[in-house]
Design a protein around this nucleic acid. Structure first.
Lengths: 186, 186
DNA sequence: GTCTATAAAGCGATAGAC
DNA sequence: GTCTATCGCTTTATAGAC
């Protein structure tokens, strides 16, 4: 996390937005070049592996962000219930109330899934596991905690689909609020 | 629905599988040509509008199928609860227990959303509305029925994402079973 | 109605000047 | 480290033979 990595992190953030907006197949090098301000030559200097390496590093950066900002707090919060509340808040922020898509979810549904299946699994497993850990600390049994955690993650992904389909952020906000309420009830 | 339309329906079904497997951007004419057995010339004879027309007709056919097999039964079943049970069964069949993706959901999340936003909205609105109608017949108020219906459709879409991410049909089956149980409770 | 051949544009990726 | 020029290939789409 040294300062000299900031430049690459910024670049990865810009790349992530292009992949989110156009998907892996649709994110052409021309679009990437335009969005990042770098020529193709520079891009291949940063990522000798081309588009595939770009996407792999973007997915790794996303996983890293979620680990740091969501999964770890969820596991270590002194009050697990507060950790869950903060998870929903951070999730809503991250996805801009449903106007920003989940790149990992898009990849999971898309044709490029096979290329990145490892990273996709790690991302979702990390989320479900961290949430299940918090629920166990709230008193749920192992199986019940896992079931509820899976359900919550699934609701977030479904809310993103429906919010995009209806082009209505309120669908997302409403769904997340309900999901949080249900998860913390009893 | 005349018999002479069957050939085009079969063609649209084959096209749908290509779009599901590769997404709109990834479904190249070469892939489509291979999957359908028609040369590019023939494809442009059937669909002068090219790929965009193909996708539009595929989405229309999907909407038609859901209307006929799911939305209408949901509205007209003499027993609304039975209609809901059958909706979940038909949904699980249609998506092959989560191994088949929802093309409309994929389009909603993808870059081609703007091209097909009308059809995407109609599909999901049709589903939510039909399900809400069944729930009202079961005694729910307008707002409550709509809320529950939206939640159920969202759960189905989320279950597809998670099942694909984990590459595990059981995730889908479990989620649908739970969703059905919750919807029919009380 | 179906094909092959081909056009024109865009793709990912590379080479080499600076 | 960044660029322009370019390669070889694939893309969508069209033209024209059969």
């Amino acid at each position: 996390m040294a300062k000299r990595e900031t430049a690459r992190d910024d670049l990865l953030a810009a790349l992530a937005e292009v992949f989110r907006a156009h998907g892996y197949e649709g994110a052409t090098l021309s679009l990437i070049s335009e969005a990042t301000g770098f020529g193709k030559g520079s891009l291949y200097n940063f990522f000798p592996g081309g588009k595939e390496q770009m996407a792999n590093e973007v997915l790794a950066a996303i996983d890293c962000w979620f680990n740091e900002k969501i999964y770890t707090p969820l596991r270590t919060a002194s009050d697990p219930a507060k950790g869950i509340v903060e998870m929903y808040a951070a999730t809503s922020d991250y996805f801009r109330s449903g106007q920003r898509v989940c790149l990992v979810g898009v990849v999971a549904l898309g044709a490029s899934r096979d290329l990145f299946s490892g990273k996709v699994k790690v991302y979702f497993a990390g989320w479900v596991d961290a949430l299940a850990a918090a629920l166990r600390r709230l008193g749920d049994g192992t199986a019940e905690a896992r079931r509820k955690a899976e359900q919550a993650v699934l609701e977030i992904q479904g809310a993103l689909v429906l919010a995009r389909a209806f082009d209505d952020p309120k669908v997302f906000s409403r769904a997340l609020k309900e999901s949080e309420r249900r998860l913390l009830a009893t």
